[in-house]
Amino acid sequence: MRRFLIRCLVSGAVFFLAFAAIDFCCSMVAERSDRQPFNVWHDIMGGTVDADVVALGNSLVTLSFNTEYLDSTLGVKTYAMGFSGSQFDRQTYMYSLYRSRNRPPKVMVNFIDQRSMSLTKRVPDKEQFFPWFFDKDFRRVVFPVEHFSLSERFIPMWRWREFGLDLFISRLDSHITKGFKYVSYSLSPFPEASSKPMRFGSDIVALTPLWEEYLSRNASEGIRTVFVVPPMYKSYYYVPGSKELLDSTFLALARKYDAMFLDYSSLPIKEDSTFFRDPYHLNGKGSEVFCDTLARDLKRLGL
């Protein structure tokens, strides 16, 4: 019995150390990856976001804010800081880490929509955080919000379960340019309506103080803020009253903090599904049309 227990303990220790080493290697590989879902964090944490115009938002930014196109059209450096599935409270900690390690932008473009104003408990793709579990700043900012379990924090490789092989084999996507992902297809058959009506309403009230804090910080540091309402396909489901509430809230904030409000929800492309990957996201072709209009408006506003 004694021999068995000692062997169990020794084996357990050997496995623990070996898995810790493998965990470290996985984290290193992922940390250095410039592919989804690590690419944006990689740039932020590595301090390599070198841009004058930075867009902040959820996956809408990743698929709509065509950085290559905007760079050539605007003649300035741009960056798409999309945080998949995130709401604004989470975007603020991404922004805080970005600001602490990178040069400041001249303009922040914030994508506004009902989804990023609906608070949810868990961000999808939580594997995007894994490589930085040992980074002090990252832990300080991210852990209080994301609530990783003790086993995920301290048992080597445990947090990689479900994602592990799949993450390294299937989901890495190389078509990423400064945070922008060019999607060349439309879903087929094209979904006619969003199947998930989302919660909305009181959450925007809860998020308003965060917006105020964010906007006042930008204003004090001379960073201009632009609110952008991106186009959605005509069948996209809006919670009744949500569009009006968003417009009134952000128009008021724009007035208060001298920000701009650009509404593209009625762009003609919303009628044509070939510009969309799904009712919520533009595809590559749609992103070019949208960014063409956006670039013209930004130029006209003197940016």
């Binding site: 084996s11 496995f15 070996a18 898995f19 490789m157 379960r161 479900e162 092989l165």
Partner: peptide, 18 residues
């Protein structure tokens, strides 16, 4: 033997779903 155990544990862990 230990390498085999470790490989099996690792793969099992990576496919484990709560």
């Amino acid at each position: 033997r230990y390498a085999i155990y470790m490989a099996i544990i690792l793969v099992t862990l990576l496919y484990y779903d709560d």
